[in-house]
Design a protein around this nucleic acid. Sequence first.
DNA 1: TTGTACGCGTTATCAT
DNA 2: ATGATAACGCGTACAA
Lengths: 350, 350
Amino acid sequence: MGVMSIPDHTTGQARRRKKQHSGVTMADVGRLAGVSQVTVSRALSDPSKVSAETLQKIRDAIDVTGFVPNAIAGALASQRSMLISAFVPSITNIVYSSFIQTFNARIRSSGYEVLLSETGFLPEEEEKLVAAHLTRRPDAVLLTGIHHSARTRKMLLGAGTPVVEVWDVTDSPIDVCVGFSHSGAGRAAADFIADQGYRSAAVVSAGDERAQRRMRAFSDRFAQRTGAAAIQLDFPAPASLANGRLGLRQLLETHAFSDGAIFCSSDLLAHGVIIEARARGLRVPEDVAVLGFGDQDFAPHTDPAISTIRVDRQELGRAAADALLERFAGRRPERDVFDIGFEIVRRASC
Amino acid sequence: MGVMSIPDHTTGQARRRKKQHSGVTMADVGRLAGVSQVTVSRALSDPSKVSAETLQKIRDAIDVTGFVPNAIAGALASQRSMLISAFVPSITNIVYSSFIQTFNARIRSSGYEVLLSETGFLPEEEEKLVAAHLTRRPDAVLLTGIHHSARTRKMLLGAGTPVVEVWDVTDSPIDVCVGFSHSGAGRAAADFIADQGYRSAAVVSAGDERAQRRMRAFSDRFAQRTGAAAIQLDFPAPASLANGRLGLRQLLETHAFSDGAIFCSSDLLAHGVIIEARARGLRVPEDVAVLGFGDQDFAPHTDPAISTIRVDRQELGRAAADALLERFAGRRPERDVFDIGFEIVRRASC
DNA sequence: TTGTACGCGTTATCAT
DNA sequence: ATGATAACGCGTACAA
């Protein structure tokens, strides 16, 4: 157990380069405690199966040696990695990161760890990453959205692990699915805006397939309700204040937009629109009304506060985690599609 | 290839949901290709060590079987997990997540994967998470900040893995360290503000030890330069628009602040201050000047645009990744402390 | 170029 | 309550 020798910090540079952890094994601990390796394993996984005194001896030996269990060996032997692969389009988009935050917390409290990767908005990229992750034998996989390459689906099916798709709903999920209807949200937005008597409308989005589905549904419904076609603007991702400002500028200057409501695919865009409007001396909502999406935490604190569509990201994270944990417990959830819905939050901007 | 046959367990408890991937091993692939397991291993890790025709046979066999290498077994055998543990205070804070994004990209392109965890701002929480991660034998660890519990340091030293501490500098890093001086940034802010003739100042921060160090240095220097004490406001994390607005409100109403500059510990707070100021009809920077921190991507697009202190997060992510990759290559970096500096960006708000 | 033998550090299965 | 022994699936000598 040469491991125990303290790395000589004296020279500072003389530290080892190869990976050779503490190198202390259960066998080492057992030897020191006067028991076999298996007993150490048991003491750790289920202390009740070991007598009080040997348990104490083992604990002492662990303290002395600084033993750290090797989860890799454990995973190989037990065929459970205690790892969950998660894929989101962007980790810098707070909409996804806050969702992951909740998912993470829930998952971790059950002993699992989350291996997170950013896929961007291209299925091919997702495919590569899924392949890479499957190599680590995750016990479950979380995917954002319901559109995945054929190979991705095949790999996932082949792996036989539970899969949860989030942020959308579909009748044919890979496994289970929790989200809400984007076209439904778009229609609700159109109704909300039409109900307030607006006769003209525009949408501004930023390169996200789900956002575009909301926008299409919005336009269809708005036309249906008012007979007017909504002007459509789509920027490349990511959604930003800059694109919001640019959006209003283009709407005003090249689309002759006036006196109507703008449905933005994100609160960030909505905020940009508001900033641009005020910089131009336009009143919100009198001259331009703005409806956002996401109910991000800043939405109530802009001036005017942003009216928006709220999606309960915490609930989404919890539900996704719970669906997986249910599967781990051997149960299948009652349904395989959970629609957590959305809610229009009326504030001052629309 | 026993895998392909239906598991017929004695009790007839057909295919349990244990975790049973495709179950195809290198041995299975080899059998089908007419070679041994090692040859398959070689074909995958270094195709040049295998003859062209057997390589082809192996590839075919892989396609047919849908073989997915088991990285867990690989890690156990090679003693390299190809995993890097990273810890940041918050994944929803874009300042950290955008840094991680770059770090991730760099790391992944070298075949490693990043296991990310959120520590909050308490060393004890970090300690628990580090212990959990060490269990998976990461090949390296990334830590945010330079303040860690004694046990955390001890565990890390004991593990013998490379460690990079980021977002700060110190003379005594655990291993290597890349960041910038927070007190230096605070002083630079004070000079910047004093140079413009402001005679009164306030700071508003949001519960982050590094931010507080900036603030303290700011106050000291500002007092030194002008003889005036800066009013200090500290909110609980996270920094938000709401806290920025609240900050200005408190400054105005309970601290009789007027006609000076406010140094915020984050651009988000700065934006909040600006919104509150404009909502009150105050002019920025004439009535209240605002200096932010971080140069987040929205900073140039607020109205007025936020003057701020820029930290090159991309560079930080790259440098951290490179420091680790160097270590993997067996080299030690020339220095173990990298100061990537910062830069004051003057825009309209100050 | 290919194969044999062994080890990595656990968990699972039986036995005692 | 504890121990022997066999997997787990792959890498790394070393041999052929």
